[in-house]
Design a protein around this nucleic acid. Structure first.
Length: 430
RNA sequence: GCCGGGGUAGCUCAGCCGGUAGAGCGCCGGGCUGUUAACCCGGUGGUCGGGGGUUCGAGUCCCCUCCCCGGCGCCA
């Protein structure tokens, strides 16, 4: 058994090969049948000639359809008329399954494709994206393990909110109510007291009916938390981590990026760290100069974020946001208590936020005050507040949206394609 | 939640001032020994998203409703 890719590298003309896979496309021309056979590594043209295969096999080959599965035994030969310059002349074939007419032929609209997502995922485009995501995930893990971060496993079923109750998915938990995790952060904060530097990769859930191309209801969330880390320390982690992932993709997924039409020169500046840093104050100034009607204290909307990304050719940080637009757990800047020691990392080319992080409030009294200020019930955060009583230390962390990162790296125009089975705006099928 | 666009054959769509449903592709049959979205001939194809109303007559006009897509907000 050989991989299709190997026919174009390792196995030259006249090699005897056996390949198996799926019929990507089939053309029937008189006494010849051309089938493009796809496996996970590529596509090769297989030629069936009436005289080249056993007589009893021919009628079955005539029935081949798109996405039929088969195993072909044949000889490699060169032919300029074949895609890629090589093809396999079939000597024999075992057909596993003749498919009924395949519903996807390339002109379908997005709604239809989403309903047949289970079949659409076989496309070369989706395959390329999934391979890129694989490499991104591998790179993220590789970097963190190399740098001594402990991988931990926080719960998905949780008792409390992190980002606000309105966006929680509620589930039945025996005779109680529980919620699907929106973030592992609070649990990671628990674990730094024993492990110091921790990270996790988990699904996170947000019940917002977001109608944007940058939001999923279920997404893969990579979060880190480090004891004794201040804001700047974790910003360094963030930029090195992202740069490493981009480096890995550029090294290992060139072919896939090319298939997607991704301009890799747009990615190369991200290899070099540090990434630029601007404060929220400066962002507002820049936006005012660009003609935006925005005041200090306003959150950065999609248009504003997009406009800022035009000023940079690589990811960049925006830091020190007003406290009223950020979460309660962020530490206030001791020199300027109206802003937090928090940051976003925005990807260029209009992609925007891929990481959000901060130094955490480590003072019991101040954290309690912030919880009350936000109108939340301190009772729900008793265990979290405990962390500030028993050996509290300065600490910081961030969350990275894996699909956001993949979307930017792969140059996708919608986040739903950065995950095989997108859950967003209520979609749950297939 | 708000704003905009849409739902007609398996798929992509057309359907004018209301007059009784169309094309291309697919599929089926036939032909073709180099196809690259093959081609040629013949055949097949419909709860016009759902409900109600106006009308002699509704895909078309009106009301209600469901679903999908794009944008905003929220965030990673």
């Amino acid at each position: 058994m050989v991989e299709v890719r190997e026919i174009f590298s390792k196995y030259g003309p006249d090699s005897q090969v056996v390949v198996r896979g799926w019929v990507h496309r089939v053309f029937k021309v008189g006494g010849k049948i051309f089938a493009w056979v796809r496996d996970p590594t590529g596509v090769v043209q297989v030629v069936f000639e009436k005289s080249s295969i056993p007589e009893d096999v021919w009628p079955k080959v005539k029935k081949l359809t798109r996405e039929s599965s088969l195993e072909v035994e044949g000889v490699v030969r060169e032919d300029p008329r074949a895609p890629g310059g090589r093809e396999v002349l079939a000597k024999n074939v075992k057909i596993y399954c003749i498919s009924p007419p395949f519903p996807i032929r390339g002109k379908e609209d997005i709604e239809f494709l989403l309903n047949v997502r289970h079949l659409w995922l076989r496309s070369r485009r989706m395959t390329a994206i999934m391979k890129i995501k694989h490499t991104v995930l591998e790179a993220l893990r590789e970097w963190l393990l190399k740098e001594g971060w402990w991988e931990v496993t926080p719960p998905i079923l949780t008792c409390s909110a992190v980002e606000g109750g309105a966006t929680l998915f509620e589930v039945k938990y025996f005779d109680k109510k529980a919620y699907l995790s929106q973030s592992a952060q609070l649990y990671l904060e628990v674990l730094i007291y024993s492990l110091g530097k921790v990270w996790s990769l988990t699904p996170s859930f947000r019940a917002e009916k977001s109608r944007t191309r940058r939001h999923l209801s279920e997404y893969w969330h990579l979060e880190i938390e480090g004891a004794w880390y201040d804001m700047e320390d974790t910003m360094k982690v963030a930029e090195e981590l992202v740069a490493h992932a981009v480096r890995r993709v550029l090294e290992e997924r060139r072919e896939e990026l090319q298939l997607l039409g991704r301009d890799v020169s747009k990615l190369e500046p991200a290899l070099e760290t540090p990434y630029p840093r601007i404060t929220y104050d400066e962002a507002i100034e820049r936006l005012k100069r660009k003609g935006f009607n925005i005041e200090w204290g306003d959150d950065l909307g999609a248009d504003e974020e997009r406009a800022l990304t035009q000023d940079f050719s690589k990811p960049f940080f925006v830091t020190h946001f007003p406290k009223k637009i950020k979460a309660f757990y962020m530490k206030l800047d001791p020199n300027r208590p109206d802003v937090v020691l928090g940051y976003d990392l925005l990807a260029p080319e209009g992609y925007g936020e891929i990481i959000g992080g901060s130094q955490r409030e480590d003072d019991y009294g101040k954290l309690l005050a912030r919880i009350r200020e936000e109108g939340m019930d301190p009772k729900d955060y008793e265990w979290y507040l405990d962390l500030r009583k028993y050996g509290s230390v300065p600490h910081s962390g961030f969350g990275l949206g894996v699909e956001r990162l993949v979307m930017w790296v792969a140059g996708l125009d919608h986040i739903r394609d950065a995950t095989p089975f997108p859950r967003w705006r209520g979609r749950i099928y297939p």
